[in-house]
Nucleic acid binder design. Structure first.
Lengths: 296, 296
DNA sequence: AATATCTATCGAAAAATTAGATGTAGAAGG
DNA sequence: CCTTCTACATCTAATTTTTCGATAGATATT
């Protein structure tokens, strides 16, 4: 039983004529005869009585009419739904590094939620490797990496920007105000860094390795908010993206160290898989993040 | 959008795999790919995300799942309905001569209704010509004729029997008890007959015409119950089938005249059109009439 | 590193749908 | 009464659609 036949059947029944239905539907009359016969054969019952070139619905025919209408109505309803582009109702899974997660949630989430209350967003944190794996397994809809600038034909970079990074210390630090520092000047100071696998930490280590240098931090921890507050109240040094340190820099609790010979490129990238179906919700979310999160 | 594709789609979604759905449905894998693509093209949206050989329903896909289930459920429900052979619910239109109508309704209808309370029967009366016309235009489901024995390849004679006919008079008639009467003995008596067009009346007239005889009845009326009661209380004579006169013959109010030279064949026939769809109700009704109405 | 698994795609084969011509029979109109 | 028109069934042939089988590309598994 195919929809094509049901539609023909409905038209025949309404017009009371094979010929008229054929004209209306753009079929030849023999095709309509065939389609109805096909239905009758499949169902094993007569749908129309043919007596002297006049057709009359049988009881079974009457019953089918009602079902056929319901079925066609469902089909049309669905197609209408498609056109309407729907209210946002999707679930979106975003994965970011810890620091970005915190920043986004405190700075932007409430505003986003106010604007699009029906989009449900799930935030998860992970390091770059995990995040890319999740993209590959369609477990994350979109991710934000803080890492070297990465490119892969399977991914779409919705937006990217280079992140300024600085070595930071407490404002009363012995390094404050000193110009033209070298990495070797501070390499032996006590460091607090993010965990090893994490994006920019890895880039940092690799960059040091190039110069045959190495840092063994006195503390490793993923939570950058904790790092900054520790640094602000001690003689510890860290290496962090500006967006993390900005509040304490502004309030004068932290200061940048003027280290000239470590120019590390760290990129913040908003990435999704090229085969990802863009639901309206996802599109909206990504556009919002491009606008607000990558504004500065 | 054809049902075939929807069924495939449902299976793919449930099994989470094109290949498994193909195996289950007996298609090749490429066919399943093609069918899903066909749906996606028609709807203009992706139904599955394909990321690294793993498929995941998109939002649109999820929506379609729900509609597809409803549509398939309707189809199956209808087919189930067909199998169940349904409770009787049909309307049946029966057309008979006046006399048969009266006889059937008084003798059998209540019993039939008690046995099959859900079959709604509509009785109409008409003469043979009208009745056959109604069969030809599918306006009557089944008819009963009292006429010469008729045959036509378009009709199906469900049951037939020859009807004994007699000339009848009141029991005190001057003809009572006389043996070996000829038609010429009574031809000039006052007759009451059914109306001209009516089945057995026409046969009767034709038979007389063969012998160059003619009767001009003093009264013509379709209602045979009236004819019999008039005859019983007068010197009128009539020519009627036995089933009409039986009650008054039994009660001794009427008597048969022993006319030997008028052997008219009148047949009672239960007829429907060969293209008539036999609903269960109609089948039941016809079987009942064959059994009860043609019993003697 | 080799094997197995999964989907996309392509061309060929098979099957289904469709159209056109013809037949039959009643309806309509002169 | 005869002709014309209309309506549906049926047959054949053409066309379109569906299906399969083989292959490719890429990942997962062992």
């Amino acid at each position: 039983m195919e929809l094509r036949n049901l539609i023909t059947f409905i038209n025949v029944a309404e017009l009371g004529s094979f010929t008229k239905a054929a004209d209306l539907l753009g079929y030849s009359q023999s095709t309509v005869s065939f389609q109805i016969k096909q239905l009758e054969d499949e169902l094993g019952c007569l749908l129309f009585e043919r007596i002297n070139h006049t057709i009359t619905l049988t009881e079974r025919g009457h019953e089918l009419i009602s079902y056929a209408h319901q079925i066609c109505a469902l089909e049309e309803e669905f197609k209408e739904n498609l056109k309407e582009d729907k209210t946002y109702s999707g679930h979106i899974h975003v994965v970011t590094p810890d620091s970005v997660c915190e920043e986004m949630l405190t700075a932007h989430y409430l505003d986003f939620h106010r604007k699009y209350p029906d989009i449900s967003v799930r935030f998860t944190t992970g390091d770059s490797g995990v995040m890319l794996d999740m993209l590959d397994h369609n477990e994350a809809d979109v991710i934000i990496t803080l890492d070297h600038r990465l490119y892969n034909k399977d991914y779409i970079i919705a937006k990217e920007q280079q992140l300024p990074m600085h070595f930071v210390a407490a404002s009363e630090s012995k390094f404050e105000g000193l110009k033209g520092l070298s990495i070797t000047d501070i390499i032996n100071e006590p460091f607090v860094l993010t965990e090893c696998g994490q994006g920019y930490r890895r880039v940092f280590d690799r960059e040091l390795a190039k110069r045959s240098l190495e840092i063994t931090p006195v503390l490793e921890i993923g939570r950058t908010d904790i790092i900054t507050s520790l640094v602000a109240e001690s003689n510890l040094i860290s290496y962090l993206p500006d967006f993390v340190t900005k509040p304490l820099i502004k309030s004068g609790k932290l200061c940048y160290l003027d280290v000239c010979d470590m120019n590390i490129e760290i990129w913040k990238q908003l990435i999704y898989h090229k085969n990802k179906w863009m639901s309206k919700s996802l599109r909206t979310f990504i556009d919002y993040v491009k606008r607000e999160e990558f504004s500065d």
